[in-house]
Simulated scan of single mutants.
Amino acid sequence: MPTRRIIIDLSDRQLYLLDDDTVIRAFPVGIGRMVTATPQGEFSIINKVPNPGGPFGVFWMGLSKPHYGIHGTNDPSSIGHLVSHGCIRMYNNDVLELASQVSIGTRVTIRS
């Protein structure tokens, strides 16, 4: 069985879903502003919350770095831009698709 993992490339503002080392899906994302940059490093998904409310769109996946996550948005025009306080924003349809394909414990690499 392939191992799923996520790579978020800050320079091209894309989230890649991989099976082992093969990219199976790419999604555009919004990332942190310069003063509230998205943290780089190795993390994992620690929780999944449907309908979290507020600016988090239809789904929240919390990362092992406290207060950071991958989530939907109530402002789709923000995708592709430096807009957040460090979280990874996705279109609501995209975050639902991603959430259905990854589990708690999935490795998340954030790099520039």
Rank of each mutant, 00 (worst) to 15 (best):
P2H: 12
R4D: 09
R4I: 03
R4E: 11
R5A: 05
R5K: 15
R5Q: 14
D9L: 06
D9G: 12
S11R: 15
D12K: 08
R13S: 12
R13G: 10
R13M: 13
Q14R: 15
Q14V: 14
Q14T: 15
L15P: 03
Y16H: 14
L18V: 11
D19V: 08
D20L: 02
D21W: 06
V23N: 07
I24N: 05
R25M: 02
A26G: 14
G30M: 09
G32L: 13
G32H: 11
G32K: 13
M34L: 14
T38M: 08
E42H: 10
E42N: 09
E42P: 00
S44Y: 14
N47Q: 12
K48C: 12
N51Y: 12
P52R: 10
P52V: 00
P52Q: 07
G54E: 08
G54T: 08
G54K: 05
G54L: 11
G54P: 06
P55K: 05
G57R: 01
F59W: 14
F59C: 04
W60A: 11
M61N: 07
L63P: 04
S64H: 07
K65D: 01
K65G: 00
K65W: 04
Y68I: 11
I70H: 04
H71W: 02
H71L: 03
H71R: 07
G72M: 05
G72A: 04
G72K: 00
T73Y: 00
N74G: 03
N74C: 05
S77E: 12
S78C: 09
I79K: 06
H81C: 06
S84C: 09
S84K: 03
H85C: 08
I88V: 14
R89N: 04
M90W: 10
Y91C: 04
Y91D: 10
N92C: 06
N92A: 03
N92G: 07
D94P: 01
D94W: 02
V95N: 00
L96M: 14
E97D: 13
L98D: 02
L98S: 01
L98K: 07
A99S: 13
S100K: 13
I104W: 10
G105S: 08
T106S: 06
R107E: 14
V108L: 03
R111S: 07
S112A: 13
